[in-house]
Design a protein around this nucleic acid. Structure first.
Lengths: 390, 390
DNA sequence: CCCTAGTGTGTGCCCGTTCACACATTCGTC
DNA sequence: GACGAATGTGTGAACGGGCACACACTAGGG
C-alpha cells in the first residue's frame, strides 16, 4: 500500500489551473524516477475540494489514475494491460493500483483508438414471428452469444424483416458498428449478403451460403447425409411406401433434405410421394400429410422435413385413424422440443444448434483476428436419434 | 457537387510531414471565410499516393471530411448533426456533403466524448436451458430489441447462469459498458439487483422487482387478477372440485398466480388441491397432475400455472382416461405455442410478451434520458382467451 | 454613434486509450 | 572501454466527435 492513500484526486481541473503551461518540470529528459522512491509532489492538495457534497461524483478511474497511484507512466500501465516489456515490480505495483482504484478500461476510448467495435452482428433474415417459432435460431443465438461473451465481444442482434430494416442494417454494417457478422437463414441474392461481400466484413454463415458468396465461410450440418441416414433406416425397418413432406425448398436446408431423401430411396423414389410446402411449420405438416394420404393411402413411412412438420403430420395421421408407428413410421428433423412433446416421441435428426452458434462465433472471431479460415465449411455432427415414432 | 471530386484524401500522414508545426496559418483570428468563396488551398495533392494498390483502404469519412467538402468548419457540421444555429444554405451544403462522402458518425468517438455507451443490457437471471424453454423470454427479448434499435441503442444480452457470470456481468455493469438494464426473472436477494441499485444504473424489471429494490420501475402483467379471472370462469362453468398446479413459487409470477387462485375460490379454497412444483415445465405438469389425481380423483377443474405445465397435465389426464374438457376443465397461462399445439387447444391467459419487452425498453430509455418515471409500475393487459380445454 | 441582442460560425481543448518513438539501463562481447 | 542487443520506461500525438467560448455580422433602439 505504498500508494497515495489521500482521498482526493481532483479531475476536471478548471481553466485557470491548466493555464500554467504543460508541466515543463525539472527533468525533461526521462530520467526514470525509480518508483521505489516515494515520488514527492503528487500535487494532491490542489484547490477546489468544494462542491463535493452534492452527489457521489462517479468519475471512473482511468489509466492516468492507475499510473499515478503506482508511480509509473500511462505507457507502462498500458503495457501491463496489453503486453510488452514490464519489470516484475512495476507490474506488481500496477496491478495493486488497479485493484485499489477499481480501474475498468473504458471501452469507447479503447475502441476509438483501436479502430474497432468489439461487437459482432447476429443477422437474422427472417420475419420476427418465425424467429420465435423456430426453436433452432434461439439456440444458435445463445450459443453464439456465449462464445462471443467469452471473447469479450458484444453480440448485437439485427433482425431483418422489412426493406426498411435492410437499409438500417446496411448502414449499421458499413458504419463500422460491428467488426463481423453471423448470418442465419440468408436466402439467395440477398442484398445484405452482397453488401457484406463488398465491404469485406468478416462474416460466417449458418447453413449454406447463398450462391454468390462462395468466399464466405459457413458452419452447418450435413443435411443431405442426415436425411439419407434417417430415410435409410426407415427403409431398413421394412416400410414399403415411403413419402416425404418437403419444406422450405428455397432454403438450402430444405432442398438438401429432399436431396438426401431421394438419394436414400434411389430407384424406389417416387415423386408422387413428395408433398412440398413452403415453411417448416405445424400447419403445413397437417396440409402436407393430407396431400400424401390423398395420393397414396397405402403410405407406411413418412419423412417430415422438420419436427414441427412431423407434429402436424402426426396429428393428421391420428385423425385419419393411422397408428404411429404401427401403421406408419414417421420421422422428423431438428430434435426440437416438438420431438419430445409428440406422442409418441419422434425419431429425428439431432441438430446441435448451440454448437453451431458457438462455432460460427468462433469462426467470425478468428477472421476478425486476421486468421484466414483454412476450411471454408465446418460441418457438425448431426446424429439420428431413435425414439418411438419409427 | 461543388466539392473536391479528387479521389484522394490521404489520412494517416507519416511522421515527417506532420513535423511541420501545427498549422499556424495566416488568419488566426476567425475571419469567417464565407463558404460561398471557393476556399482555395485544400491541400488535396498531398504526397504519398503510393501503396494504394494493396487493399481498398476503407478509411471512413469523418466530420473533417464533411466539413472540407462543404467548405465549413467541424463545428458547423456538428451543429447540423446535433442541433444549433445553422443557416439554411450551410445546412444544405453540409447535407449534400454528407451524402457525397458517405459520412456515418463513429459511434466509439461519439460515445467517448459524450460519456455513454448507447447500449442497454438485457439481463436474464436464468439458466441457459430454461431461457430456451420459456417461450416468453424470447418474445420479451425481441420486443425490447426492436424498441432499442429504433432508438439507436444496442441490446447486449447478458445471461447469468453461474457465479462466474455474476462477476463478469457485475464488472460489465459497473464498467460503464451499458447505460441501462432490463432485468428479467430476478429473484429475491440477487447480488446483481443490489449492485444495480448501488451504482444507480437506470434499470427496469420485467415482473415484480424483488423485495429490496422498491425504487426500480417494473413492467409486467397483473398475475393475481388474471389468475383470479380465469379461475373464476372455471367456477362459473360449474366445476366443483377445482385444483391448481402451482409452479415457481419463489418467483413473483408463480406466487401471484397462486394468490389469484385462492382469491377466486374464497371459501371453497382447499389447500389439498394445490400441487406445488418448482418450475414452469411440461415434466412438472405431469408430476403435479398425478399428485392432484391421487389426492382427489373427483377433481373436475385444473388451473395450471403455465401452458407448458398444462400440457403435461393434459397428457396425464388423457392417460388416466379423463376427457378434457368433458370430465375435467383445464386452463393454462401464457398463451404460448403450447396452448395452440395442445389437443384440445388450451384456454389460457394471454401474456403480451412482445409488448412487455417493448415497454421495458422504453422505460429504461426514458430513465437514461433523465425522465423520472411517474408511475413505478406499468401493468399491461393480459386478457383471458377461451379455447376448447375449458 | 454606440450598445445590445440575436444569429451564425470557427477554434481549441477534452474524452481515455493506444501506438510509435525516443531514450535509459544493464549485460555480454570483441 | 566502446558497442550493440535486450529490456524497460516516459512522452507526444493521434483516434473522431462534442462542447464552450470567442468572435463576426446584422438589426434595432436609445
Amino acid at each position: 500500500m505504498w500508494a497515495v492513500t489521500g482521498p482526493e484526486k481532483p479531475r476536471r481541473t478548471t481553466a485557470q489551473d491548466v493555464a500554467a503551461p504543460k508541466r515543463t518540470s525539472g527533468a525533461t529528459a526521462p530520467a526514470p524516477p525509480r518508483r521505489t522512491a516515494p515520488e514527492p509532489a503528487r500535487r494532491t492538495a490542489a484547490p477546489e475540494p468544494a462542491l463535493r457534497a452534492s452527489a457521489p461524483r462517479k468519475t471512473r478511474a482511468t489509466v492516468h489514475d492507475v499510473a499515478a497511484a503506482a508511480g509509473v507512466s500511462r505507457g507502462t500501465v498500458n503495457r501491463v494491460l496489453n503486453g510488452g516489456y514490464v519489470s516484475t515490480d512495476a507490474r506488481a505495483a500496477i496491478e495493486a493500483a488497479i485493484a485499489q482504484v477499481g480501474y475498468v478500461p473504458n471501452r469507447a476510448a479503447s475502441n476509438l483508438a483501436r479502430q474497432r467495435s468489439q461487437a459482432v452482428g447476429f443477422l437474422a433474415l427472417e420475419p420476427h414471428s418465425l424467429l420465435l417459432e423456430d426453436p433452432n435460431i434461439g439456440a444458435i443465438m445463445l450459443g453464439a452469444n456465449a462464445a462471443l461473451s467469452l471473447a469479450d465481444h458484444q453480440m448485437v442482434s439485427l433482425v431483418i424483416d422489412s426493406d426498411r430494416d435492410t437499409q438500417r442494417v446496411g448502414r449499421y454494417l458499413s458504419g463500422g458498428f460491428v467488426d463481423g457478422a453471423i448470418i442465419v437463414s440468408a436466402r439467395s441474392h440477398d442484398p445484405i449478403t452482397r453488401l457484406i461481400a463488398e465491404i469485406g466484413l468478416p462474416a460466417t454463415f449458418v447453413g449454406h451460403p447463398p450462391d454468390l458468396a462462395r468466399t464466405i465461410p459457413f458452419v452447418g450440418i450435413d443435411n443431405v447425409g442426415s436425411a439419407r441416414a434417417i430415410t435409410g433406416r426407415l427403409m431398413q425397418t421394412g416400410r414399403q411406401r415411403i413419402g416425404m413432406i418437403a419444406a422450405a425448398l428455397d432454403r438450402d436446408s430444405g432442398a438438401d433434405r429432399l436431396t438426401g431423401f431421394k438419394e436414400a430411396l434411389g430407384d424406389r423414389f417416387d415423386p408422387q410421394l413428395v408433398a412440398d410446402v413452403p415453411l417448416y411449420d405445424y400447419a403445413y405438416g397437417v396440409k402436407g400429410m393430407r396431400a400424401l394420404l390423398d395420393r397414396e393411402p397405402e403410405i407406411d413411412g413418412v419423412f417430415a422435413a422438420s419436427d414441427a412438420v412431423a407434429a402436424g403430420a402426426l396429428e393428421t395421421l391420428r385423425e385419419a385413424g393411422r397408428r404411429v408407428p404401427e401403421d406408419v413410421g414417421l420421422v422428423g428433423f431438428d430434435d426440437s422440443s416438438w420431438a419430445l412433446r409428440a406422442q409418441p416421441q419422434l425419431s429425428t435428426v439431432h441438430q446441435p444448434a448451440r454448437e453451431i452458434g458457438r462455432t460460427a462465433a468462433e469462426s467470425v472471431l478468428q477472421q476478425i483476428g486476421g486468421v484466414e479460415p483454412v476450411e471454408l465449411s465446418v460441418l457438425l455432427d448431426s446424429p439420428v436419434v431413435w425414439r418411438h415414432s419409427a
